[in-house]
């Protein structure tokens, strides 16, 4: 029983981290129509910045500073890169971010080297949160969940309760009208892109020390968050939320079950499951879980 509970908590905490990543991607996609291929690279940058800042002044300042830095870089990329390619269409924008992912990875190699850096969980968050019979659950996992939930509630409130949130929502569906009403839509785009990157950066700050901070981390997580966006339904935040938790739990439980089929254990195929889910969903429900549009 406690095994089941611990695995569920593991699944949810991983799923929430995935959602922090995919929410930024989904927001940017639904607003700008740009699929940011470098999104996972911003996740990586977040982890590295946090490593650097926490080595100098500590983890807590890093928790704030690193996402802000990543967000600032994101805004610069939007302003001086994406906006230039915008006239060439969405494919060019996607390819721009694709090239950017290469460049960020090389830059990380250059600055921080090619092996893992020593980015640790801070001492005050290191240790067991609670024990259930024999198993203990680390504080840091609990902290990750807390941060994710806080951020998500904040975003939701910001989108539905603030003026800029309403403008963003309006710009999602009616950019011309919003422009006509005197709002600076390009600036909204820049803010949203920067915001999405900052979210990825924050995920990097709390994911980088929970797992590992190394140059391959972007490539490891990238395809999964794209799958989440497809499975949840392109551009649907709620869909991305459900898909993130689903995939987080699915991968966790695939590992813990000892079922096997034709000599292959389900734990061996765990990483393929998200892709299988995506293929099945496309055959039976092409819109995705909560998507509203096809195409």
């Amino acid at each position: 029983m406690e095994f089941f509970l611990v695995q569920t908590l593991n699944g949810i905490s991983y799923g929430l981290l995935l959602f922090m990543l995919s929410s930024g991607l989904t927001l940017v996609f639904s607003l700008m129509g740009v699929l940011n291929f470098a999104h996972a690279s911003f996740y990586m940058l977040g982890a590295y910045f946090a490593f650097q800042v926490s080595a100098k002044i500590g983890f807590w300042p890093a928790l704030v500073a690193a996402p802000l830095l990543v967000g600032a870089i994101g805004m610069l990329v939007e302003r001086w890169g994406l906006r230039q390619v915008h006239k060439h269409g969405h494919v060019a924008e996607l390819l721009f971010t694709f090239g950017l992912a290469y460049l960020i990875e090389e830059a990380v190699h250059l600055i921080w080297g090619r092996s893992a850096v020593e980015y640790r969980v801070p001492a005050e968050l290191d240790g067991p949160l609670f024990r259930i019979i024999g198993s203990q659950y680390p504080i840091y996992r609990g902290f990750m969940m807390l941060v994710s939930v806080t951020v998500l509630v904040t975003i939701w409130l910001a989108l539905t309760r603030t003026r800029i949130g309403l403008v963003i929502q309006a710009a999602l569906t009616h950019p011309q009208t919003v422009e006509a009403l005197g709002h600076n839509v390009p600036r909204v785009f820049m803010l949203v892109f920067g915001g999405g990157c900052a979210l990825a950066g924050l995920a990097g700050v709390i994911g980088g020390n929970a797992f590992v901070t190394e140059p391959g981390m972007a490539a490891a997580v990238g395809p999964i968050i794209f799958v989440i966006v497809v499975v949840g339904g392109m551009g649907s935040l709620a869909g991305a939320f459900v898909a993130s938790l689903l995939i987080g739990c699915m991968q966790t439980f695939a590992v813990s079950l000892d079922w096997s089929l034709a000599g292959i254990k389900i734990s061996q195929v765990a990483p393929v499951l998200p892709y299988l889910l995506m293929v099945l969903l496309l055959i039976f429900r092409p819109k995705g879980l909560m998507g509203t549009r096809e195409g």
Binding site: N10, R141, V255, S256, S267
Partner: peptide, 18 residues
């Protein structure tokens, strides 16, 4: 006795729980 995919696992917590 488990085999896990090479270089694809970022969260080993489920394996550890097992």
């Amino acid at each position: 006795d488990d085999l896990h995919p090479l270089g694809k696992v970022s969260d080993f917590a489920p394996y550890v729980a097992k």
